[in-house]
């Protein structure tokens, strides 16, 4: 796999989904400015949808912040994994932190050597940032024109991109077992706990499986 091609494909696919976010936020009565600030400053898709979703459902600002932060916890865990690789100092750590998301982590981990992993992180991080913000603005301005993202298959293209990134990493039995258990755990928790908790709880499985050799 070429790291540039991976990064670009992910940036475009996920970036396009930003239009759905822009449209959703404006439909929930966020202003275009607030919508664009969420994409620029929060910059984590699931958390952004959570903020908009909670407010649209009549939730308080505090519950919107809590849900969004819970969903964003995994970015901190990705940072733990990426920091030794990226060897960050000063302002580079600030920039890298802002673009530490599912996509930049996923592309980095899909590479075979450290050099490509670093490139994958930066290319994908900046690429998604650019397209996500561009499409957020487009979606916010043309809220009705895009219509339903499901009709364009975007809601399946995004998880497909993640499975495509994970696939080359699933090389040993331990990863397969972990992946299988993570699916079972996340789906069985889904009906009973707030959105975000099923995903973050799967980190426990990594701890249990990684504890022993």
């Amino acid at each position: 796999m070429s790291v540039k091609r991976d990064s670009f494909s992910v940036a475009i696919t996920v970036g396009a989904y930003g239009s759905a976010f822009g449209a959703a936020a404006v439909s929930a009565d966020f202003t275009v400015l607030q919508t664009c600030l969420l994409s620029l400053l929060l910059f984590s898709g699931a958390s952004q949808f959570a903020v908009v979703g909670v407010i649209a459902a009549g939730g308080t600002a505090l519950s919107a912040i809590a849900t969004s932060t819970l969903l964003g916890t995994r970015n901190g865990l990705y940072g733990l994994r990426l920091a030794p690789l990226l060897k960050l100092h000063g302002w580079r750590r600030v920039i890298a932190a802002q673009i530490t998301i599912d996509e930049s982590t996923g592309v980095a981990l899909a590479q075979n050597n450290e050099e490509d992993m670093k490139k994958g992180f930066w290319y994908t991080g900046f690429g998604v940032f650019f397209f996500w913000n561009l499409f957020t603005l487009a979606g916010a301005l043309g809220a009705q024109a895009i219509g339903n993202p499901s009709a364009w298959g975007l809601d399946a293209a995004v998880p497909a991109a993640f499975i495509g990134l994970l696939w080359p990493r699933l090389t040993d039995p331990k990863s397969w077992v972990l992946a299988g258990l993570a699916i079972v755990l996340a789906l069985s928790f889904t009906p009973f706990v707030p959105a975000g908790v099923p995903i973050i709880s799967s980190a426990l499985l990594a701890i249990i499986i990684g504890w022993r050799r």
């Binding site: 599912d102 996340a186 799967s202």
Partner: peptide, 19 residues
């Protein structure tokens, strides 16, 4: 070891939930 496995677990769970 754990740190290498955490993104695999989180991203797989994310795929399952998104699907």
């Amino acid at each position: 070891r754990i740190n290498n496995l955490i993104p695999v677990a989180l991203l797989t769970a994310l795929v399952a939930v998104n699907t």
